[in-house]
Nucleic acid binder design. Structure first.
Lengths: 167, 167
DNA sequence: AAAGTTATCTGCATGCATGCAGATACTGCG
DNA sequence: CGCAGTATCTGCATGCATGCAGATAACTTT
């Protein structure tokens, strides 16, 4: 039965929470040597298992050229690797390097430890509820991310540096 | 009574949650036209109320020169403004522009809406618990951020472009 | 009031992600 | 087999955040 004052408070609390988590993510990414595009791409190929270069381009919203360089960086950093598509030798399949995810786990370590301390003060039932929230919130955040990205980026359509059919 | 299997599951769930939230933050920042340093700086001055240019430099880990440009960008984007320090006319005090925070609220809107849907499915008591978590987790994430930043950045000490006293 | 110290700003250079356009390699259809 | 379409890569150019070092202004001490 939240009173209006509580509602405003909840608003602020959530705002600060988002800010803090986002900042932590940013710091982790920086520590891992990952920029926005790289993190996004790595998250994509990790969740999908693997993606072709072109698919990665359209999902990230980058041109195919920029995506090639993006894959170069991910590969050089050891987070991903190129593989050949047996059915179509033009295509390049990008997949995450398993060990690399452990390296990311390292940079996320501080956050995990600090949060573990917080979680330790709750009962098992309460923890279960929190993890239930985490489980449901993750897709919600991903949906929000997509919404933001599609709203922001020009809907005109990506230049994909395709062979110019005109002429 | 979490079984080992559950523990591993919790690990993964939390990992995905962090990834999703971080990505959302990244997308929001991009939509707001804020880069890492800018977001961090804006978060700092918002929480502190105001900060001098030099303090901002040391807190962000940037040189004073880079901080000047950082403030330029924040000011031009309308997120912050410069104010004079009445006690020391050399100093520049940076403070957030109140209205600007509303603009950030906009880009965070999608996340807030999606999460609101999730939260709506819990009881008041459960929501209270979740917000209790948010309240405690925010400082924990900030601590983790500091830990990551200080661990990563070279501990040698920042070049602050100060008058080189040494010779 | 002169000298030294401190706070911020500015010019220059660098590194880097990205877009664009052409190049290359491969597929599939006729 | 040849040709059109497709997937990825590469060279060039651009924009931008940052570091570095000097410049400027203001405070502090004696």
């Amino acid at each position: 039965m939240t009173t209006p004052a509580d509602a405003a408070d909840e608003h602020l609390v959530f705002r600060e929470y988002l800010d803090a988590v986002g900042l932590q993510g940013l710091a982790s990414a920086e520590a891992a040597g990952l920029h926005t595009s790289e993190w996004y791409a790595l998250s994509l190929i990790t969740r999908e298992g693997s993606l072709s270069s072109g698919e990665l381009a359209s999902r990230t919203g980058l041109t195919t050229g920029a995506t090639t360089r993006l894959i170069d960086r991910l590969e050089q950093a050891g987070y991903a690797r190129r593989a050949a598509d047996p059915n179509d030798r033009r295509r390049v399949i990008v997949e995450p390097v398993p060990d690399a995810l452990d390296r990311i786990e390292e940079v996320v370590g501080p956050a995990r430890r600090h949060i573990a301390e917080i979680l330790a003060r709750y009962t098992s039932e309460q923890r279960a509820l929190l993890f239930d929230y985490f489980r449901h919130a993750a897709p919600a955040f991903r949906a929000a991310t997509e919404e933001i990205r599609t709203t922001t980026s020009s809907p005109g359509g990506k230049k994909t540096t395709r062979a110019r059919s005109s002429r």
